[in-house]
Simulated scan of single mutants.
Amino acid sequence: MTAAALQAGALDALLSPLYWFLDAWSTLLSWVGELTGLGLLQYGFMHRAILVGLCVGIIAPLIGTFLVHRQLALIGDALAHTAFAGVAVGLFLNAVIDLGVSPYLTAVVVAMIAALLIELISETTDAYNDVSMAIVLSTGFALGTTLISINAGGLTVSVDQYLFGNLSTVTSQSAAILLVLFAVVVGVVAVTRNQLLYVTFDETAAEVSGLSVSWYNRIMVMLTALVVVGAMQIMGVILVAAMLVVPVAGAAQISRSFTESLLVSVVLAELAVLLGIAISYYAGATAGGVVVLAAVGIYVLAVVAGKLQTAVGEEATPEMGSIDAGAAAERSPSGGQVPTDDAD
């Protein structure tokens, strides 16, 4: 038995509890498909794609809400391109030395290293975050294209699924890996939510209070890397950053607090994922593109709803200039003039 087969067997053994969960999930959706007659629920790859989409619909806006409020929306693009380099590294090693490792695992490693590099470049060179992101983005994509060109014989066909996403290529192993990433992201955010929130809205005050701002910044970019790799399975490298930003931007139009914005963004993302997967299946289109278009359509509706909400609120609030000062004085308990700032 080759080393690659041994490694694959060891990974499958570690993921075996998640395989059991995937089988139970598939059984459940098959039963729902029989009851409803929905054709897309009759296939195993669609069961995995829907589960992956639902997970992405939670963790992407969960992290994206922090990123958007910190004006780091473009970091998703940078890490997506470096995750592509990670995929190329995995495919290259499998082709050259028969390593047998999942390209998604190498993508996780490379994306997390890139996330740390973005923070390291900003801290050591005093460069703005967008400069460090541009450097890492271009380096990652250059590395990926170089590795592909070196071994173009077997990589150009298989790499398309990572660039554009593909529902039919979501294997049980990649879905299980995403479930692990999902648990890590949700667990870390649950434990560090208050600290991340403090650093997000007042970095200076957080540092004065004793929080290690640089440490929590690293946590945030590493979590972003995990989300990017997870979403890459159905969104592809080119569109993965959209799920970090678009649902959050839509939620900001109709939400009144950070927590409400986070919850609403998850709901909007889930709607976009389910609509996008269903439409792409019946239309025979690429899932990633349809999901993003659905998210943008929901964003437009959220903008309209926000404008209507604002207009209704303005109509319900009386204009201060329309209040008669004399009438106000008559209604005052003392019967005298209402005091003003100039009365002092």
Rank of each mutant, 00 (worst) to 15 (best):
L105M: 11
V87Y: 01
L99D: 07
L117N: 01
T124S: 13
V89M: 06
I135C: 05
N94E: 01
A83R: 05
A107I: 01
A114T: 02
I59P: 02
G64L: 13
I75T: 08
S149E: 15
L40G: 09
T146P: 04
I135L: 14
G100K: 08
R48N: 13
I97S: 08
T124L: 14
L116A: 14
V131I: 15
V110A: 03
N94K: 06
L40P: 06
I59R: 05
A95E: 13
L137D: 00
L93V: 13
L143M: 15
T106A: 06
G140K: 05
A83E: 05
T65D: 07
I50E: 02
I63A: 04
A95K: 12
T106H: 04
A80F: 04
L120R: 12
F84A: 04
R70C: 07
I113H: 05
L105C: 08
Y43A: 13
T82N: 05
I113C: 12
L116N: 08
I118C: 06
T124G: 07
L51N: 06
L38I: 13
T65W: 02
T125Y: 00
I148C: 14
L99R: 11
G100Y: 06
I50V: 15
V87F: 04
L74G: 10
I135N: 04
T139N: 13
H69V: 09
G53E: 09
L93D: 12
A127M: 14
L74V: 12
S102K: 01
L147Q: 03
M46S: 04
G76M: 10
H81F: 10
L137W: 03
R70F: 10
I75S: 01
M46T: 00
I75Y: 05
H47V: 12
G39C: 03
A142P: 03
G140W: 00
M133W: 03
Y104P: 03
M133I: 07
M112Q: 06
A85C: 11
L105I: 15
V87H: 00
L72V: 05
T146D: 09
L67Y: 01
A111Q: 01
L41A: 09
L91A: 09
A115N: 04
S102I: 04
N129D: 14
Q71E: 15
V68K: 04
V96K: 15
A142C: 12
T82L: 09
F66N: 02
I135P: 01
R48M: 07
R48T: 00
A127P: 09
G57I: 02
T36Y: 11
A111C: 10
H69K: 14
L54A: 14
G100A: 13
